[in-house]
Design a protein around this nucleic acid. Structure first.
Lengths: 223, 223
DNA sequence: TACCAACAAAATGTATCCATTATGGTTTTA
DNA sequence: TAAAACCATAATGGATACATTTTGTTGGTA
């Protein structure tokens, strides 16, 4: 066979459920029954329960004291605060990075932004993270970088549909270009300010969308 | 009976192992065998496995791809970076808090610092966290506050023995007093600077101790 | 002595079984 | 009719049994 499919059940189940939560297949609030998942993946409940604990630790599912697991919901308030945190840390990373950046880092960033300009909508979120990752790498702060990665992957990724519908990517790309220019000029203050705006502007817009959608959903539910 | 002892096994096992890791009963690198734990708590391996997954999510234990679980180790580098992150977020919280502080917040902070002056060594870590928590409450940033709480509880607490041996608490208490004064005077910049020094100074001292102890331990091990 | 193979012991991974608890609908009663 | 009690169903929590993998040891060979 071409590859080794014999991965531990816990891992593959965890990965698959995580992916389905992130891409919206399992929507907010959906009940995750151990027996259903077990029969879906043709495994026993034992690995399923461990997978749910792992995902609960990632705040993707919530396990109530009755034992029932559901997909967590994203409140506009907590989303905004996550963006604030993201901005705080990313600005710090950028501030530490800029003095240590070499020409090749700038070149890589430009290259990635070009890829972003041409990429399919599906690829946007991961490529966007890679772009930011390159900018922060010189700072050499693996832990902070990891926090950012988590915020991007575990949380931001769940809003992909919003991001796509918002269609602010052209502006994002322009802002990326500006950011790179400022880095190249070693304009730390300007770059940090640009980055903070870049993050928080889209944050407010997305939070508004979130709010109005949840309002709509609640109205539909009460019919 | 005075209380309901019938808690779920997963929870009580998780809590107990967590406490033992934090207080050093289970030291860095110690192997956590499922069967041993199960027999220790008189439960089957099923809840033990879930508990280990939860603790792995908290980065208190590491589960290797062989399935073996061990208590995670704290490298001086990662400790310093955690302190940097802590300082970054706490300074932000303080900056947001000060303009919203009332007289009763200041009073509470003073009160807590007085308790700190008189408290037993055992009580220092949790009380110290409470002191900081009060200062950040007006900022109304539950998520950031939670990150800070985690950093304090899950990580800082493991260094209790170092903190005690370091005996820098008198200076800490003076710094706390100064911090409160600056808050009362609405001296945002000064307070933030004082807080950052307060955190990072002890961070560097602790990191040095960590380094020398790990060096000593490695030398002893190689005998 | 150093290295490798084979085997034995121990630990983990998963499935299945039973006990307990929560849930939803039905019936009963005020 | 509305609310409370009850029961049947379904789901979770934990224990046990078995399969698989890992690890350590022993014995043999160069």
């Amino acid at each position: 066979m071409s590859e080794n499919n014999k991965q531990k059940a816990v891992l593959s189940v965890t990965e698959d459920i995580r992916a389905k939560i992130l891409d919206g297949t399992y929507p907010e609030g959906m009940a995750l029954s151990q027996v259903d998942i077990a029969s879906t993946y043709q495994v026993s409940r034992t690995p399923v329960r461990e997978a749910l604990q792992i995902l609960a630790g990632e705040e993707l599912v919530e396990i109530r004291d009755t034992g029932r697991a559901t997909v967590t919901t994203i409140s506009p308030e907590s989303f905004l605060e996550k963006c604030e945190l993201r901005a705080l840390i990313e600005v710090k990373l950028l501030e530490l990075s800029i003095p240590l950046m070499g020409a090749e880092d700038i070149a890589k960033a430009r290259e990635l932004n070009e890829s972003l300009k041409k990429c399919a909508p599906e690829e946007w979120t991961p490529l966007n993270y890679l772009f930011h990752e390159i900018l922060y790498k010189p700072a050499n702060r693996p832990l902070m970088q990891n926090v950012i990665k988590d915020l991007h992957h575990r949380h931001y990724a769940r809003l992909k549909s919003f991001i796509l519908s918002h269609r602010n990517t052209p502006r994002s790309l322009r802002e990326h270009d500006e950011l790179i220019d400022r880095c190249e000029r070693q304009d730390i203050e300007g770059a940090c300010y640009a980055l903070e705006s870049h993050i928080m502007m889209s944050a407010y817009a997305l939070a508004e969308q979130l709010k109005s959608q949840q309002l709509k959903r609640r109205q539909t539910a009460s019919l």
